[in-house]
């Protein structure tokens, strides 16, 4: 496993686009966090996002996991292109001739996807913890470390998404087309979801890959204090389950497995 990660990281380290995208990802990550702490001064109206309660423990775990997850699309580009560039450069063929098995090839890509998801999750944890410690109104140990399920949900969400990208990169063999395919899948799932809404087949959209990933971390906006109090004034109590469901986690992990195994079967069948 060490050898395979080593091989893949060596490739990424020497790929300019992968380096740029990775740096872009992590700097956007940090700057988004920093931006929320800046005080906007509009004359008599002072506004600071950090003062709106988004960094209150334990709510901040939920809030941050949800919003930071949007940035994953940047890493998706890295994952897709690390797969498809092996096709366009025909280096996949050379790797196999040099003695890498098809299984090892897929595994090396998968391991690095896990690594990316892990790094992003750790960074999310650290950044959220630091911002929370600065801005949170509550700082009891027990409160700080409650609701950590969102961090776990975030990891699974990224892992599932990257595995899907891996599969699409291999299936389509061209980065741009693979990302287009991803977009198409998103639209198709949207159509399926909308057309089955309020029918007895509504449950089907729980199982489609992107939808399942989306449901992993429910939206946190309506849980925010100011929104809630506004809703109360309008007598519209918001009732929603905000927890990370085990069922959805299992669904996404199943998709992860299907994507990685599917990629392996696909590669095994192909003549290069």
């Amino acid at each position: 496993m060490r050898r395979l990660i080593n091989i893949e990281l060596f490739k990424l380290r020497h790929s300019r686009s992968a380096k740029i995208m990775t740096i872009l990802y992590f700097s956007l990550f940090l700057s988004a966090a920093l931006l929320s702490t800046i005080k906007f001064d509009f004359g008599p109206f002072n506004f600071r996002l950090a003062d709106q309660g988004i960094y209150n423990f334990p709510y901040t775990w939920h809030f941050m996991s949800f919003f930071v997850a949007f940035l994953k699309i940047i890493l998706a580009i890295v994952i897709v292109s690390m797969m498809s560039s092996e096709y366009t450069n025909r280096t996949l063929k050379q790797n196999l001739i040099d003695g890498l098995s098809k299984k090892e090839f897929i595994l090396s890509k998968f391991y690095v996807s896990v690594l990316y998801a892990l790094c992003s999750t750790i960074l999310l944890f650290v950044v959220t913890l630091v911002l929370g410690l600065i801005f949170s109104d509550y700082d009891e140990f027990q409160i700080i470390f409650s609701d950590l399920e969102y961090i776990g949900g975030y990891f699974v969400k990224l892992l599932g998404f990257f595995s899907l990208c891996l599969f699409l990169g291999l299936l389509v063999k061209r980065s741009a087309f693979a990302l287009g395919f991803l977009f198409l899948l998103w639209i198709v799932e949207g159509i399926i979801g909308a057309s089955l809404h309020d029918t007895k087949f509504d449950f089907i959209s729980d199982y489609t890959p992107l939808n399942a990933m989306w449901r992993l971390i429910p939206e946190p906006i309506t849980r925010l204090d100011i929104i809630n109090s506004a809703a109360k004034q309008l007598n519209a109590e918001i009732m929603q389950d905000y927890s990370v469901s085990i069922f959805t986690i299992i669904t996404v992990l199943a998709w992860t497995f299907l994507c990685v195994f599917g990629a392996y079967r696909l590669l095994k069948k192909r003549d290069l």
């Binding site: 490739k11 450069n89 025909r90 280096t91 050379q94 196999l96 001739i97 040099d98 003695g99």
Partner: peptide, 15 residues
């Protein structure tokens, strides 16, 4: 076995 083999095919493929 291929680790003990040296092979070049039609076109040289490198990064």
């Amino acid at each position: 076995a291929l680790k003990k083999v040296g092979a070049i095919i039609e076109s040289p493929n490198f990064y």
